[in-house]
């Protein structure tokens, strides 16, 4: 089996608190993999370990067969691992087109060119425009990020990740804070991504998860509780137990 992203006994302690406990995760190439678990289960911490935002206390991270545990964030990005953030991390004073062009520049390796103006790097600009078009953001391309509604900003968050042309895309609650009607649209654009892009999704809305994912892992208290196909997970009594409270709330 071909794996896009794996972890081996990954662990992270903050002081005495174990946020990630001995997690060994296998994500198949091309999978639509969802990571679920109650609040505080350590999902975002796991994403941060995968991307190199945090350094693990122990264990390894393997990206497409290569051990990347010691690599920094931007080096993992260069190797095809991109992410979105649970809370928007955008460039408030840049226009949408500038933001996305900047991201494309980095992927094309022209981000350090210091003589010709941004607009003269046609390949990057054209690609950014095409990406905005595909996310239906062209009409706000020249607006500053701060002037947009949260739902639109959420799409920029995703555009920045897609500009990396990722092999593996980590989506940390992409629909958080987005009105229901718009979140449906948002997931349509995500579902429309090429099948060879592997996606790991963190999401609270179980409807979305079961519609979207073909594999699900359940994280509880920092450790992996179980994993399997949506059918297996849905009928797993352990998962039901964990989720009983939340299911009622939802």
């Amino acid at each position: 089996m071909d794996y896009a992203l794996q972890t081996r006994n990954l662990a992270k302690n903050f002081g005495g608190f174990t946020a990630t406990n001995n997690v060994s995760l296998n994500i198949e190439a091309g999978a639509r993999h969802a990571l679920i678990g109650p609040n505080g289960a350590g999902k975002t911490t796991l994403i941060n370990l995968l991307t190199g935002f945090l350094e693990p206390t122990a264990g390894r991270v393997i990206l497409q067969g290569e051990d990347v545990t010691r690599l920094g964030q931007h080096q993992r990005v260069k190797r095809g691992l991109a992410r979105t953030f649970q809370i928007n991390r955008l460039f408030a004073d840049l226009t949408v087109l500038e933001s996305v062009t900047m991201a494309v520049n980095e992927r094309l390796g022209v981000g350090a060119r210091f003589w010709k103006p941004v607009g003269a790097h046609h390949q990057a600009v054209d690609e950014a425009v095409a990406l905005l078009d595909s996310l239906r953001l062209l009409d706000v391309a020249h607006a500053t990020t701060r002037s947009l509604a949260y739902g639109k900003q959420r799409l920029i968050e995703i555009a920045l990740a897609l500009a990396m042309k990722p092999r593996v895309l980590l989506l940390d609650e992409p629909a958080a804070g987005v009105p229901t009607t718009e979140s449906r649209e948002l997931f349509e654009s995500i579902a429309a991504l090429p099948r060879d892009v592997t996606i790991l999704l963190i999401e609270h809305d179980m409807d979305l998860v079961f519609r979207f994912a073909d594999r699900i892992s359940v994280l509880v208290g920092g450790a992996l509780l179980t994993h399997g196909t949506p059918e297996v997970i849905a009928s797993d009594p352990k998962v039901r137990e964990v989720y009983l409270g939340e299911a009622i709330c939802a």
Binding site: H74, E106, L160
Partner: peptide, 8 residues
């Protein structure tokens, strides 16, 4: 955000 778009 910058490292997450691949910038050193």
């Amino acid at each position: 955000r910058m490292p997450a778009i691949g910038a050193p």
